[in-house]
Design a binder for these strands. Structure first.
Lengths: 343, 343
DNA sequence: TTGTAGGCGTTATCAC
DNA sequence: GTGATAACGCCTACAA
């Protein structure tokens, strides 16, 4: 049975060489130090015996664990699974694995997770949880732990990040609506302590001030979280105002879904009475009724590039911090239409 | 700076005690062996210095890593994220963490992932990927690695499993339809190499033979995968047959969505022409058009219980293998209605 | 090219 | 109750 864990010494004994020789053979970097015939023989025996290096022991010795932490704010938000898959695929290709943790949108548990990850001597960290002012990010920087932010970023530090071009995203949404003829546009924003929440709102305001439509702060709300419930709530706040509007830009698809609910409760039809745009183009929004016009972000690439940049930094201390900004795309579906002339 | 990792020796030096004493203090199990005052002092100093035990070193010495592997067939299938969250929550509460891997529905990569996990000396494994005959499960059993299957199971081994009561699920779907008056019911099944695929079909057939409706193998197909595309394809195969039917039982929500597409392409309306039931009640199926009648399974509990049973087995070699079968619930929505009298 | 020896940080075991 | 010692499995100067 392979029940019994076999180690480098066992292999050495069978191959009649010293354990260090076996170590050298099994290590791509040092393999060239050993003669071809011995190397082949050792390799064959190791395979036969089903030897597998203990990453604990080798990690202890070398200080590298080939393990990366990944913290996600909410795995049940369909934006993240594809990002996670991208991360895993890219890491796996290089022999790294991911410890995944869900912070449940709580900064406190993010911190706790971070501490627990540190104790496991991870080689690096990918954070999808960044807040504008984020102690975990600061800690990584202070401790020189390689870290890459994905989707969201922070203000303070020079940290590698792979984010969506949110300016472009909001521009696409707004110009789509203005081209349809909308002039009074409401905004359903996200939490202002995240860059995605804040920056999408900023861009929206800027476009308003630039005259692309008539900006009215009364119909621009910030939601407490990127959830359907928060979107529902936020939309109700907008509806309470007098300000007429013919369209809503939601800064996230879940908010848009909450918006759908609030509109329906008021007897407003989408897109006949109000057009709605989402953001992220998460899975299944094409099957809502009406199918949601949204801003498609490159979920997969977000993950893949984050992982690859992290590996670069792990391998090279001095690798410069980078910012990758991926361009999104407007996907027009049934939730947007020209404003009805009657309104 | 805490940049410099501090270890048990550093703490010992500062506290003027032997490293083993520090180890004893920091270890809940052995803390009682040391006098209260020394324990307190050491603890305080350790906290001050920001000491964090190296889980690598301690794992190497003790043979326990407090790490569990989790293999998921497809994280982008919305059934799994809540299961994963349940797993993580339960593991985290006990100081364990999860290495998550997505096998991409491929048995080959499942095997590769398994090997890579083994090398990381995980304490146990949770598999959501089980096939009826699964070499990875066999390997776990052979090597005495604690393993828990979730959602799907295997035939051959006596392995702890946390699964949905699929018999009940199909019964709920079928009796809902027969109560509505349906007599000719089609079946859109999953891959026959998974227990979920096979057993749901078996139950469906049994109910047919028992006379609950008229069973017709021509309108019962097995899909190659639990995906929309496979469901679409499968439904087309059903539609090609002469056999008239007024309802479809899909053995998974993604298949049901594919079914929606195929029906729409044929100009058949749901539920007016054909009623459809899904299975899993994954997130957002309540927002499809029409909202999908589905079998709600306890996603979260599936994960939580799997994690807890795994912890039991990790802690006690001799813990008996258990089977937990969670009862699902029928959620009636807009995709089912009485058959139209015209058909 | 291969062997030797020491240590990564922790803890089990023995001795005091 | 505390200290000393060895070992978990691996890697890497250094020596031969």
């Amino acid at each position: 049975m392979s029940k019994q864990k076999i180690n480098i010494k066992d292999v050495a004994a069978r191959a009649k060489v010293h354990p260090s020789t076996v170590s050298r053979v099994l290590n791509p970097t040092t393999r060239s130090m050993v003669s071809m015939d011995v190397a082949d023989r050792v390799q064959k025996i190791a395979d036969q015996m089903g030897y597998a290096r203990s990453s604990l022991a080798s990690g202890l010795r070398t200080g590298k664990s080939f393990t990366v932490g990944v913290i996600i704010p909410d795995l049940s938000n369909p934006v993240f699974p594809p990002v996670v898959r991208g991360i895993e695929r890219a890491l796996g290709a290089e022999g790294y694995i991911a410890i995944l943790a869900d912070s449940d949108n709580s900064q406190r548990s993010e911190r706790a997770i971070f501490d627990s990850l540190k104790a496991r001597s991870i080689d690096g960290l990918i954070l999808a949880t960044a807040h504008i002012d984020d102690p975990v990010v600061s800690a990584c920087v202070a401790e020189d732990l390689p870290v890459v932010l994905v989707n969201r970023t922070v203000d303070a530090h020079d940290v590698t990040e792979v984010i969506n071009n949110d300016d472009l995203g909001i521009e696409l949404a707004v110009s789509h609506l203005t081209e349809l003829g909308h002039r009074r546009i409401a905004f359903l924003g996200g939490p202002m302590d995240t860059t995605t929440g804040r920056d999408r709102r900023r861009t929206f305001e800027r476009l308003g001030r630039e005259g692309q439509f008539s900006f009215d702060p009364d119909i621009c709300v910030n939601c407490a979280a990127f959830t359907e419930a928060a979107g529902h709530d936020g939309m109700n706040r907008i509806l309470r105002h007098e300000g007429a509007f013919t369209a809503v830009v939601a800064s996230n698809d879940l908010l848009a879904i909450g918006c759908y609910d609030a509109l329906a409760e008021c007897g407003l039809a989408c897109p006949d009475d109000v057009s709605v745009t989402g953001f992220n183009d998460m899975r299944f929004v094409d099957r809502l009724s009406p199918p949601l016009t949204s801003i498609h972000i490159q979920h997969d690439q977000l993950g893949v590039q984050a992982a690859n940049l992290l590996l670069e930094e792990i391998r090279d201390d001095k690798a410069p911090r980078k910012t990758v900004r991926l361009d999104p795309e407007l996907i027009v579906r049934g939730s947007t239409a020209a404003p009805s002339t009657s309104s």
